[in-house]
Computed example of a mutant assay.
Amino acid sequence: MLIRRQSSIRPSEITSREVYLNRRSLMMGAGAAGITAALPNGPASAAQLRFTKSPFSTSEEPTPLEDVTSYNNYYEFGVDKGDPAANAHTLTTKPWTVAVDGLVSRPTTFHVEDLLKTVTLEERIYQLRCVEGWSMVIPWVGFPLSDVLHRVEPLGSAKYVAFETLLRPEEMPGQTGLFQALEWPYVEGLRLDEALHPLTILAVGLYGDMLPNQNGAPIRLIVPWKYGFKSIKSIVRISLVEKQPETSWNRQNPREYGFYSNVNPEVDHPRWSQATERPIGEGGLFAKRKPTLLFNGYAEEVAHLYAGMDLRANF
């Protein structure tokens, strides 16, 4: 099993803040200004977060920070992997609010800076599996989504949670132009029991600092047993609803992208196998592929959510 207790996480597995900042300084000197510019106010003033270590952490070695912040899918800033790091510096993340509404007793609009004063942040070292067949291991900093949902008191009729990201084409160049990869704004959804699961978090940081813009600043969803596109970035609205909500990739191509999108090596994408994955940061394009695990290695924690379901039909 990949989940282990806090005491077994070796300090050597996490890049220290000092090493991280020194690396970024060296990268600036080497001409990596595009990546550096996407960090809020530059690396020297990156806001370090206070957090506790979580027992919900994988034993896998974390992916180097440079790869985590430079190899991204964030189509609002471009469709190439390097586009978010090059373009996301245009995004204004302060102030930022998240409206939580729908089938709730206490609809609330949270100011992110105020919300962070009322939650206990944890470091969750999670595996990330992209539907494209590559993977990372990322030390996120965040808090359970359930903390927010319990505050607004979902009604008994609420069965699903719908998420919406920012629509701001003047700051998100991928939302402009004649030909668009997706319909904006980006939307996602979970079943309510999935949203309330302890592994589901809202992340506000990685590697101990606030989220860089290209990684979904200032607040994003992380659902580690699902393909990465389910973990919607730069959230502005969370709505409790009765019926299954639309999601961006399912709307774009329902044959290829199901609502659930649980990591499953036995259910291939129509255009490629999902049986193996390529770890990013381990040899580039020539990295040795490794077997993909059911539910991305979190089957012990989440398989009961899908008891009796046909995972091929509900892909």
Rank of each mutant, 00 (worst) to 15 (best):
L199D: 03
E282R: 13
V263E: 05
N264R: 10
R255L: 06
N262I: 13
Y227K: 06
G133K: 00
T108P: 03
E18Y: 10
L311K: 12
A307I: 00
P279F: 01
L240R: 08
L192W: 08
G133P: 04
F286W: 12
E61V: 14
R23A: 11
L199E: 04
L311P: 03
E61P: 01
T58M: 09
G205A: 07
I14T: 12
P185D: 13
A38W: 00
K233A: 05
R4M: 12
V236L: 04
L149I: 15
A99E: 11
A47P: 02
P107Y: 08
G156W: 02
G216R: 08
V187K: 15
H150R: 15
S25E: 09
E66D: 07
G133Y: 07
K288H: 03
T93N: 03
K94A: 14
P55W: 09
E18D: 15
T109C: 08
Q252C: 08
G228A: 13
N41Y: 11
H304Q: 06
Y227D: 05
Y298D: 08
G156L: 01
I219F: 07
S146F: 00
A85P: 06
E256F: 03
P107N: 07
E242V: 01
T109F: 02
N22F: 05
E183Q: 14
K81M: 13
E153S: 14
E18I: 11
T200N: 14
V223C: 09
R106T: 14
W96L: 01
Y126C: 05
A86H: 06
F51C: 05
L121D: 02
G78L: 02
T69K: 05
S12W: 04
F51I: 06
E60W: 10
W96V: 05
I201E: 08
R220S: 12
Q175M: 13
A99K: 09
T90W: 03
F315A: 13
F143Q: 08
R312P: 00
L178D: 14
G208S: 03
Q180R: 14
L178C: 06
I280V: 15
G208N: 02
L128W: 01
A162G: 09
A195T: 11
G102P: 02
G297Q: 04
P107W: 07
K159W: 01
Y160W: 15
L167S: 05
V68R: 01
K81G: 06
P218V: 11
A217K: 07
T118W: 01
N296T: 02
E194P: 06
A287H: 08
N22D: 12
A47M: 11
F315P: 00
K230G: 07
G156P: 00
S16D: 13
R289A: 06
T15V: 12
S146R: 15
A162H: 10
F315V: 04
E246T: 13
G82P: 00
D209V: 15
P254L: 03
R4T: 09
F110Q: 04
A44C: 02
T247P: 01
T90V: 06
R251V: 09
G228Q: 02
F56H: 11
Y306C: 02
I201V: 14
G258D: 04
L21T: 11
A88P: 03
L116P: 05
Q48C: 00
G156M: 10
P224Q: 10
I14W: 08
L294D: 09
